[in-house]
C-alpha cells in the first residue's frame, strides 16, 4: 500500500555551508596556518641559525657548519648546564611522583575542610611563576632567609647556608622551587586517575588480607601507572624547558655553575648577541621533548584503543 504522500525528498544541497569536508578544512585552516607559520618557520630558523654565525643587530651572516656545536660541546659551562638540566629534570620528577602520589592518597579521603585545602594546594600552579620565584628568592635571601632562622632556632644549623651563593645549594634551591611548582599539578592528575581504580578489586584484596603496602604496590600503583606517566611527561617538558626559575633565582650563578640549557641559551644568544650559539644550545632540549612526545603519542593511542 502506498501512502498518499511519502517523506518529502529534499534536493541535495550543494552550498558551501553544507559541504562537510570542505567546511572542516576551512574551519581548521586558520589554526593550522597560524601554527605552521609561527611555530614551523621559527623552528626551522632555529636549526638554520645554529649552523650560522648570525649575530643580533646585523642582517648578514654566513654558514659555519658544525662549528657552533663544536664550540659548545668543548665548553665546560655548556657541559655543566647540560648536566644540571638532566639532574634537575630527573630529581624533580622523582620527588614530584613520590609527593604527588602521597598527596593524592591523602586528598582522596573525604574530610571536612577539603575544598579550602585543595584551593591552597593548587596555589603554586595557578600563580604566575615569575612572581612565585621572587617570593622564593626572598625566602632564600642570604641575610634574611627565614629558612636559616628556623633551622637555627630548631638547633639544626650551626654555620650559615648561602642558598643562592653556592653551586650545590643553588641547585637544591632550584629543585625545591620546581618541585613546589609541579607537585600540585601532578597531585590533581593522579587524583583524577584514582577514580579509574576498580573498587571491587581493592575490596577483594582487602578480603584476601592484603595489607596497605601490598595493596599500594600490587594493585593501586599499576592502575595509576598511565596517569603518573602523563604527569611525568608533562613534568619533563615543564622542568627541562623552563627558564624563569633559574634565571630569577640564581641567574645561573655563582660563576655559571647553576645554568640550565635555557638560561645559557638566553645568556649567549640574547645577552651575548651570538644567535648561532644560542640556537645550538637551545636545540639540545630536543631529546627531552622527543621523549615526552613519543610517550604521549603512545598513551594517546592506547587510551583510544581502550575506549569503548
Amino acid at each position: 500500500m502506498r501512502l498518499p504522500f511519502g517523506p518529502i525528498e529534499l534536493p541535495p544541497r550543494e552550498t558551501f555551508a553544507d559541504r562537510e569536508s570542505l567546511l572542516a578544512k576551512v574551519m581548521l585552516a586558520p589554526a593550522v596556518l597560524y601554527v605552521a607559520v609561527l611555530v614551523g618557520i621559527p623552528f626551522v630558523l632555529a636549526i638554520l641559525l645554529s649552523f650560522s654565525n648570525a649575530r643580533a643587530g646585523s642582517l648578514s651572516f654566513s654558514w659555519v657548519g658544525l662549528s657552533n656545536y663544536a664550540a659548545v660541546l668543548s665548553d665546560p659551562t655548556f657541559r655543566r648546564a647540560l648536566l644540571n638540566t638532566v639532574i634537575v629534570t630527573v630529581a624533580v620528577q622523582v620527588l614530584v611522583v613520590i609527593l604527588a602520589t602521597a598527596a593524592a592518597m591523602v586528598f582522596r579521603a573525604a574530610f571536612v575542610g577539603k575544598r579550602i585545602m585543595r584551593f591552597f594546594l593548587l596555589l603554586p600552579w595557578a600563580v604566575p611563576i615569575t612572581l612565585a620565584v621572587m617570593a622564593w628568592t626572598w625566602i632564600f635571601d642570604s641575610t634574611f632567609s627565614v629558612v636559616n632562622w628556623t633551622l637555627k632556632v630548631a638547633g639544626l644549623l650551626h654555620g650559615w647556608l648561602y642558598w643562592l651563593g653556592s653551586p650545590t645549594l643553588g641547585l637544591i634551591a632550584i629543585i625545591i622551587v620546581q618541585v613546589w611548582r609541579l607537585f600540585p599539578f601532578a597531585t590533581v592528575i593522579v587524583l583524577a586517575g584514582m577514580t579509574s581504580i576498580p573498587q571491587d578489586v581493592v575490596e577483594a584484596a582487602i578480603m584476601d588480607g592484603a595489607g596497605f603496602w601490598r595493596r599500594l604496590f600490587q594493585i593501586e600503583l599499576p592502575f595509576l601507572l598511565p596517569v603518573v606517566t602523563v604527569a611525568v611527561l608533562f613534568g619533563i617538558v615543564y622542568t627541562a624547558t623552563n627558564m624563569s626559575v633559574v634565571y630569577l633565582l640564581t641567574g645561573g650563578g655563582p660563576a655559571d655553575s647553576t645554568h640550565v640549557l635555557p638560561t645559557l641559551a638566553f645568556q649567549r644568544g640574547i645577552e651575548g648577541l651570538d644567535l648561532g650559539q644560542g640556537a645550538a644550545i637551545a636545540l639540545f632540549l630536543l631529546p627531552f621533548l622527543l621523549v615526552a612526545a613519543i610517550g604521549m603519542l603512545r598513551i594517546a593511542r592506547r587510551s583510544e584503543m581502550g575506549s569503548p
Binding site: V39, I41, A56, T241, M243, G269, I270, G278, M296
Partner: peptide, 16 residues
Amino acid sequence: LTYLIPPTLLFIPFSR
C-alpha cells in the same frame, strides 16, 4: 604536540 615545542626553543629565531 606543537604545544610541547617550548618558547625556550623558539625565542632566539623569534628575536630575529
